[in-house]
Nucleic acid binder design. Sequence first.
DNA 1: ACCGGCCACCGTGTATGCAACGCGCGGCGA
DNA 2: TCGCCGCGCGTTGCATACACGGTGGCCGGT
Lengths: 229, 229
Amino acid sequence: MAAAPPPESPKPRPTRAEAIAAQLADDIVAGRLKPGAALDEASLAAQFSVSRTPVREALRQLAPTGLVQAVPRRGCVVAVPDAAQLAEMFVVMAELEAMAAAHCAMAMTPHERRGLERQIASMAGMVRAGDVSAYRAANVAFHHLIYAGAHNGYLTEIATATRRRLAPFRAAQLEAPDRMRKSHEEHVAIVTAIQRGDAAGAAAALRAHIGVTERTWIAMAGSRRPDAA
Amino acid sequence: MAAAPPPESPKPRPTRAEAIAAQLADDIVAGRLKPGAALDEASLAAQFSVSRTPVREALRQLAPTGLVQAVPRRGCVVAVPDAAQLAEMFVVMAELEAMAAAHCAMAMTPHERRGLERQIASMAGMVRAGDVSAYRAANVAFHHLIYAGAHNGYLTEIATATRRRLAPFRAAQLEAPDRMRKSHEEHVAIVTAIQRGDAAGAAAALRAHIGVTERTWIAMAGSRRPDAA
DNA sequence: ACCGGCCACCGTGTATGCAACGCGCGGCGA
DNA sequence: TCGCCGCGCGTTGCATACACGGTGGCCGGT
């Protein structure tokens, strides 16, 4: 009778539009649909073997999430945030995750803390093995453990949304040499702070973690000055 | 070549669906549509003198914002967050606004600071006159000045969304005789901290204003006390 | 009288058709 | 040669029509 963490499961059976929206979102987040790509209703309809109607509804659902940009009579394109917007989102995400980490430090249950330890141990193995793709997936899971530990569904919601929106621009982040190892060390620092109940330390560690990520991205994005905020 | 603060104006001319979505959102936020009310497509279509199609698109746009709850084959209702969810959202909103206030303290331009002073002065007059309805509107404007002063469009976006979602449940908050005066005093404290560049103080003042102290936040993490404002 | 299954109504989900708007190209004039 | 105007095409916006699923009530059985 334990309440499910998201107390609402409004998805007894997804409708076509929802399935298409989920698929498109996934394609965008995974980078299969590149920022700026035009989303033609007719083509998508043909591609999914449905009429334009569900495709339109899917796009209209995606627009408020920020994954696609809709201009009233000119169709939709995959969102292309400029450098300043990305910087803003990184700043906010750092704060959101810091908030979650602080909360974790104070309120995580023993069971959740064990889960965190297990995740860290598992990821340590991936680092040793150099398995970047496994590490990438585990990284998402790790951050979701932090969200869950904060026991705040709304925080989880907006942090997840922010992370998704930034995902296309962080895809290659772990490719940078030695980044995976550094990332893991930062994770360890975060978990250590959480485990000893150091809320401020956990928040700071997470801010630093995201901050480094942002800098890494800026370095890879080219040679623009990294003070866009 | 000066970049416009919102470099995108994706609303050359709103489409029917967008107009309906805006109208519905407004009705929900203003409390004219009460939480739990069923949103029948046909009725709404008749009411707006359009077909079901734009109404459906409007509802699909509103669903991701959290203002309405959509169940796949059972229609939409005005969202009814329970006490725990409301408490979560208040906590997050307090942190978002605290974040904004901290940024304001450090980065507001002189022009923006003068605007803040003017707003406070104007609201002081409303308090003296006991004009609750004018104060209510000015209060929203005040908080939006804080958002704007943070110079972070994404933060503004999610803070505004959160505030909108909570609006239906804060409608009567200022009706308490002394609440308006207290609220104004808190605003003054916030502005004072911002004007002297005290980021931590501004953040703390805003947290207190929203009514969620850090301790409340911590307590709520474990035990889910339904102490929604 | 209570319970179970059946049926009909209501509302949503999807498809199709038509009209309007935006855009690009070609022609005309300066 | 360059700029402006008008026209045609493609795409989106909206309306209408049909199909599927869900819900509530009715009826027969126990």
